[in-house]
Design a protein around this nucleic acid. Structure first.
Length: 309
DNA sequence: AACGAGCCCAACCGCGCACCG
DNA sequence: ACGGTGCGCGGTTGGGCTCGT
């Protein structure tokens, strides 16, 4: 018996996602939470495979995703964890909550692999420094600590998200988790719409496949919302979007900062985010990365090899 | 300015695992 | 115990973009 196709191939759309499709998907997640992807096409009317929906959400629309180039710190973590875990991108991504496994995988394949290869050919023993460092703890210890850390992180996340505990988060972390999640998700859509609106009037005949460019440019182009009044479709979509999400995304001079600042206006009680898909709490985030940095990276001899970074 | 090569990244594909009845 | 189903993961691909000539 052959494996049944994950979805009905007839009438299933492929290729880049349009902003409209993104909105439909986000709307579904807002209402039902992430999961039950099989139901998404039927529920939303999206002509997309359930897997495609899940992938789009996890790799692109999910709240808290950081885009743009990787920092040196992130790079180091990836290199170390790849050395330790191999191509377990999901596991590596769990230590970089703002990055998706796909992003990390791509970054590894396009940048880091070459970098290390170059380094390896340049000086023979540099590679071995990563794999057998005299200062580093043993592989077994690493793995045990990783496991422990992941478990602890999950517990911390659950604790932090439980209603009775959210109130005692320290003052510096008082941003509402739900709002953060919500706003970040909104921000992701907003960036798509913004670019889409900007591009559509110029080339109406062109297909709406500008999502790639829009995301790449957005972080450097957090301009005031003048674009959203350009073009009819922009107005309609923007208004629809605003009404959909209940606040004026396009009025934000800097939507990223806005979303992270935890503005009270972003509160949205009807959202019931799944804890596993929430944006990483800063506290947890910092804890993970700080712990990594302190306990692991300082034990390793990156500094012995300044040429690498 | 035009063209081709290489790069980059979003999306797809197929497999394996976990869960459920 | 077993088959069906859904989801997650890692590898791969295709098309747009950038850069060099």
């Amino acid at each position: 018996m052959g494996r049944p196709p994950c979805c009905d191939k007839v009438g299933v759309k492929k290729g880049p996602w349009t902003p409209e499709e993104d909105i439909m998907l986000v709307t579904y997640v807002q209402e039902h939470g992430p999961g039950n992807w099989r139901a998404v096409p039927n529920t939303t009317g999206l002509r997309r495979c359930s897997k495609s929906c899940r992938l789009r959400w996890t790799n692109y629309l999910r709240p808290g995703i950081k885009r743009g180039s990787f920092t040196d710190h992130e790079e180091k973590i990836i290199i170390q964890l790849q050395e330790l875990l191999g191509n377990k991108w999901a596991a590596i991504a769990s230590y970089l909550p703002e990055r998706t496994d796909n992003d990390i995988k791509n970054y590894w394949n396009t940048h880091l692999k070459k970098k290390l290869k170059k380094l390896q050919s340049g000086s023979g023993d540099n590679q071995s420094r990563f794999s057998s460092n005299s200062h580093s703890i043993s592989r077994g210890q690493w793995e045990r600590r990783l496991q422990a850390d992941i478990s602890t992180a999950k517990q911390a996340l659950q604790d932090a998200l439980s209603p009775e505990n959210t109130s005692h988060l320290s003052e510096s972390y008082t941003k509402p988790v739900q709002s953060y999640s919500y706003a970040s998700s909104t921000e992701n859509i907003a960036r798509l719409l913004k670019d889409w609106v900007k591009n559509t009037p110029k080339s109406e005949e062109s297909k709406c496949s500008s999502t790639q460019n829009s995301t790449n440019n957005y972080s450097d182009e957090l301009t005031p919302s003048t674009h959203c009044t350009e073009g009819k479709s922009g107005i309609d979509l923007s208004e629809a979007f605003e009404s959909l999400f209940g606040f004026e995304t396009f009025e934000s001079p800097n939507s990223e900062e806005f979303s992270r600042s935890g503005s009270p206006s972003l509160a949205c009680d009807e959202i019931k985010p799944d804890p596993s898909d929430l944006a990483p709490l800063s506290m947890l985030d910092n804890w993970l990365l700080d712990d990594l940095r302190k306990d692991y990276l300082t034990n390793l001899s990156f500094d012995e090899n300044p040429d690498l970074f």
